[in-house]
């Protein structure tokens, strides 16, 4: 294999939605991410894989400054969204998190109605001029999240009364409702059964291209199924980043191969 260092930085065709350069993350004295440079492309779903504790979530949280909420966390290096430095003092973090939405491992709907869960973001960001427009956003978002058919007759029921898989799709609808550019998903299916998982994967497939998507997953088959680019992390470093089809059939690095073939520790 040639040029794997260059390969690590490139994100495929087209100009990158987000770039990261020489990113380091420290929790106090402990370094959790070591000099990671990666691009995230609009046309691709990017998967982050790697053993537990390798820093996937830490790195993902850098992309919308969720690490700011952890007092001992310190991030260095450069991260841009559409060429704009997201760590610059002029960056509005609330605005940033609307542009770079996040879906967590455990579905976390607000204890409000299904409608209000989805309408929440558009309301605080003033995205809808009136009731009709808000209704419209809620419906479109639920449709994109593949949930509309199941909830359209019970929009005023509590979001927490839905099944786990439905709650996760509600959270995705909530992220979509503010019309983000990037959606970060941290193990979004780990609490779901295979059918609910398949629905989320189908939904990722449906919305890809409209949003840049980055997904952290422990499920190798899931990474292979949903992503076009895969990044393998190990002990805080980026070991390999390339085409998903290549990573899973013919990885360049032995560490990647050992991990994805189940020969790891």
């Amino acid at each position: 294999m040639t040029n794997s260092k260059n390969e690590m930085i490139s994100a495929g065709d087209g100009s990158p939605k987000m770039t990261t350069r020489n990113v380091n993350v420290f929790y106090g004295d402990k370094q959790a991410i070591n000099d990671v440079s990666i691009d995230v492309n609009m046309d691709n779903v990017t998967a982050f894989i790697g053993p537990s504790g390798c820093g996937k979530s830490t790195f993902l949280r850098c992309l919308n400054r969720m690490n700011d909420t952890i007092p001992i966390a310190k991030v260095t290096g450069e991260i841009t969204l559409e060429g704009e430095d997201i760590y610059s003092p002029t960056m509005d973090v609330v605005q940033l998190r609307a542009r770079v939405g996040m879906v967590f491992q455990k579905p976390n709907p607000f204890p409000k109605s299904i409608y209000d869960n989805v309408a929440y973001g558009p309301r605080i960001h003033g995205l809808a001029a009136g009731k009709d427009e808000l209704d419209n956003i809620v419906e479109t978002s639920l449709q994109r999240a593949g949930l509309w058919g199941e909830v359209k007759d019970r929009l005023l029921d509590s979001g927490t009364a839905l099944s786990g898989g439905q709650q996760q799709r509600l959270c995705i609808a909530r992220a979509i409702a503010v019309d983000p550019e990037v959606i970060l998903m941290d193990e979004p299916c780990s609490a779901l059964d295979p059918i609910a998982t398949a629905k989320i994967e189908e939904l990722i497939h449906e919305i890809r291209g409209r949003y840049a998507i980055v997904i952290v997953t422990h499920n190798m088959q899931q990474a292979a199924r949903v992503s076009q680019r895969t990044a393998f992390f190990h002990l805080g470093t980026l070991v390999e980043y390339g085409e998903t089809s290549e990573i899973f059939t013919n990885p360049t690095e032995t560490q990647t191969r050992d991990y994805i073939t189940g020969r790891y520790g």
Partner: peptide, 14 residues
């Protein structure tokens, strides 16, 4: 934990 290079964690696979 280190990559062994040969054996699978799931021995039945081997």
């Amino acid at each position: 934990m280190s990559p062994t290079g040969t054996e699978h964690t799931v021995k039945a696979f081997d």
